[in-house]
Design a protein around this nucleic acid. Structure first.
Length: 236
DNA sequence: TACGTCCAACGTCAAGGTCA
DNA sequence: TGACCTTGACGTTGGACGTA
């Protein structure tokens, strides 16, 4: 790890520890604005009760504090409380059905739909890079890393097509497990990218909606003032 | 120019959600 | 019910930018 990288690693850990300390002392309030908007949205738009609101989170946290004398919320518990929310696509699509003008997050690209599921849909990057930590990335913007050429012309998933019943030796089973893991990681990699893209789109949409609502609010206030002026009796 | 800081993006893990 | 999907959390990285 480079010096800068190590420094950032230490800094990140310190920041994380600091955040945990702060959060444990803030009545369980959430500092993440995205999570805040999502929770608030969940309460107002979908009406689902599976995800606690901010107030509920705070209440739960306070209850925990009373239970734990030190007042330190277990990070795992917080994670359980805050972890699950509906997908951005779902939230936004529900929102768009309620409010005209709110764009929907589009479904998967047609080119992906045109391919068979699972194995054949695996998108294999043209260039796969291996980082210094052994990670792989397909961004293509890291020239300092050596290019790791694909071992075969076919996606790895194609090899996965072999039926498990044909595997006998422990070595074959191990290879199969490794391939399954690599396939899962690759799929999850792509899913994470897509998820982040949706999240950005979702946040943009919320921001634009805030702007629209602010304008509407301003207009209504002005209208109210005008009506007040009209309706109020003249004193002189 | 070296260094520090911030930020965006990434890969991975874990856990809840969804669906056949 | 198991396989797969989705997404928050975490750790890591590189680039941009300010500063001494």
């Amino acid at each position: 790890m480079s010096k800068c990288g190590r420094k950032k690693y230490i800094k990140t850990n310190l920041r994380q520890m600091t955040m945990e300390t702060i959060e444990s002392q803030q009545d369980g309030s959430v500092t993440d604005s995205v999570a805040e908007s999502e929770s608030a949205h969940m309460q107002t738009q979908t009406g689902q009760n599976s995800v606690p609101t901010l107030a509920q989170v705070a209440t739960i946290a306070e209850t925990d504090e009373s239970a734990e004398s030190e007042g330190v919320i277990d990070s795992h518990k917080r994670r359980e409380i805050l972890s699950r929310r509906p997908s951005y696509r779902k939230i936004l699509n529900e929102l768009s059905s309620d409010v005209p003008g709110v764009p929907k997050i589009e479904e998967e690209k047609p080119e992906e739909e045109g391919t068979p599921p699972n194995i054949a849909t695996m998108a294999v990057p043209t260039s796969i890079y291996q980082t210094s930590t052994g990670q792989y990335t397909a961004t293509g913007d890291m020239p300092t890393y050596q290019i790791r050429a694909p071992t075969t012309a076919l996606p790895q998933g194609v090899v996965m097509a072999a039926s498990p019943g044909s595997l006998h030796s422990p070595q074959q089973l191990a290879e199969e497990a490794t391939r399954k893991r690599e396939l899962r990681l690759m799929k999850n990699r792509e899913a994470a990218k897509e998820c982040r893209r949706r999240k950005k789109e979702y946040v943009k949409c919320l921001e634009s909606r805030v702007a629209v609502l602010e304008v509407q609010n301003k207009k209504l206030i002005e209208e109210l003032e005008t009506l007040k002026d009209i309706c109020s009796p003249k004193t002189d």
